[in-house]
Computed example of a mutant assay.
Amino acid sequence: MIAPYGVILAGGRATRMGGGDKGRMMMGDRSILDRVIDRLSPQVPRLALSANGDPARFADLQLTVLPDSIEGNPGPLAGVLAGMDWAAHLGASHIVTAAADTPFLPGDLVPQLLLAAEAQGKPIALASTPDPEHGVVRHPTCGLWPVDLREDLREALADGVRKVVLWTERHGTALAAFPTDRGDPFFNVNTPEDLDAARGMA
């Protein structure tokens, strides 16, 4: 398998943050998105950004910007599909996605997702962390996706599927477990309070 390409999902509307590109908000001397790029780019041979609107606002990042091919802001699955189409065109067999608001991503995200998919015999792998109440929490925007499922995903989106796990469960999903003893590696910044907390953790 060719090493998976990376796609950062930045297509959300950030309504709880007041709109705009929340990945551009600063944590110290670097933005949230800069920190995601720093953590994911060493793990993949190519990296792209899934985002809608004017791509010129991301020109400084020097990344390919992938708009949704499905209208109506259907959510992260549309970003996954855009990433699949991009990677398939370049000859890659898989992509790994991460959210643009997760500045503490694990440095071993990609190898652990690959290992989980292989060990559990599933085509898709999602990151997970332990939870004292629910046992395990899945992080559906941080996953490994085979590009040969892109037509199935395109049909599912056309049929109105929006929740990631509703689609992944059709195909079988491995879970890659990540520890939280040094903090939640998938802490995501959704609100101003989250941003303050992230700045403190950084």
Rank of each mutant, 00 (worst) to 15 (best):
D152M: 05
L126Y: 07
G121A: 07
K163L: 14
A117K: 05
R150D: 06
A125W: 03
R162P: 05
Q120E: 04
R150H: 13
R150L: 11
A156H: 05
I124P: 01
T141P: 10
P123L: 01
R150G: 05
L153A: 08
E133H: 11
P123G: 01
A156Y: 06
P123E: 00
G160Y: 07
R150F: 08
S128D: 03
C142Q: 15
G121E: 00
G160D: 11
D148F: 07
S128M: 03
D148R: 08
A119L: 13
P140G: 07
A119Q: 14
Q120A: 01
G121P: 00
T129C: 10
V147T: 10
V147Q: 05
D152E: 09
H139N: 14
V137I: 15
L157A: 12
W145V: 06
P132A: 09
V136Q: 14
P146D: 06
A127N: 05
A125G: 00
K122V: 00
R150K: 15
L153R: 08
E118A: 09
K163W: 12
P130H: 03
L126Q: 10
E118R: 07
L126R: 12
R154E: 13
Q120W: 00
P130F: 03
L157T: 12
E155T: 15
H139F: 05
V137D: 14
P130N: 06
